[in-house]
């Protein structure tokens, strides 16, 4: 019975994707203008060209490098700062107005300063991604800490956890982990979206985002769409990988709590 349900679900998924592709192909053929909507077959041809030329791998690695720099720093800054703001009221009151003023500024607006502060280097691209990723991580970490059940903190104190350091690392941090995981996941999504902006100002002549701009300037919309789909596919892989890591290791203790 469970196996039959699983097969039906798979068939439905494949049917949905196949339908979208068929509709895409039909619309593209009716429009018959490659620059308005390249067809599925044109995009597949462009993709195969990029794969056989080896260029795509270099573009993916370049973008992942920028992403790793931005995400690494966003995690290194966002989680500790979120912890401190969530646990210490004084720090929260001092830092919160600054964070709330900077948070709404779009990552794109930081590009001139990224160039001026970091030059046309990978760190400038990483900085733009950092700006996009850090706030979801910080806010979710902060929320996770603020929502730590009081009963857990009191129980910890009764059992000998008196120092702030012990309370943070033994009580509040494990309780906030699901919220932090959500923050990192959202931050990764936003950060990956910033890759396109981060590569538009000449930090490299490779990268998925740069190639989207490059082919857009030359009006090869089949290439633009191919790189857009590659961008989406990589985001999907990163997200699935992160969810697997979180479910299998980070929050394995949660298994059975909800489902």
């Amino acid at each position: 019975m469970v196996q039959s349900m699983d097969i039906r679900r798979r068939i439905l998924e494949i049917t949905s994707i196949a339908s979208a592709i068929i509709i895409w192909e039909i619309i593209a053929r009716i429009i018959n203008k490659k620059y308005i909507l390249p067809s599925f077959t044109e995009v597949v041809t462009a993709f195969l060209e990029l794969v056989s030329g080896g260029e795509l791998y270099r573009d993916i690695l370049t973008s992942l490098n920028f992403f790793a720099i931005g995400m690494g720093v966003a995690i290194a800054v966002g989680i500790p700062l979120g912890i401190m703001m969530g646990w210490f009221k004084t720090i929260d009151k001092a830092v919160d107005p600054i964070i709330e003023m900077i948070r709404p500024i779009p990552p794109l607006a930081w590009i001139p300063f990224a160039i001026l502060w970091f030059g046309l280097t990978q760190y400038a691209a990483g900085f733009v991604i950092f700006v996009g990723a850090v706030f979801p991580i910080l806010v979710n970490t902060y929320t996770g800490f603020r929502n730590t059940p009081r009963v857990l903190v009191e129980s910890g104190k009764v059992l000998g956890c008196i120092k702030n350091r012990d309370l943070i690392f033994r009580i509040a941090l494990p309780a906030a982990l699901p919220s932090i995981a959500t923050g990192v996941r959202v931050g990764m999504g936003v950060g990956w979206m910033c890759v396109v902006a981060a590569e538009m100002f000449g930090v490299s002549t490779y990268g998925i985002g740069w190639k989207i701009w490059h082919w857009n300037d030359l009006h090869h919309m089949d290439m633009v769409l191919t790189y857009m789909l590659v961008l989406g596919l990589i985001a999907l892989v990163i997200d699935r990988l992160f969810r697997y890591i979180v479910q299998e290791w980070w929050l394995k203790w949660q298994t059975g709590v909800v489902v």
Binding site: L12, T15, S16, A18, S19, I22, I23, I26, I27
Partner: peptide, 9 residues
Amino acid sequence: IIAAILITG
């Protein structure tokens, strides 16, 4: 479902 989607499309 696929037929319905196609016709709508």
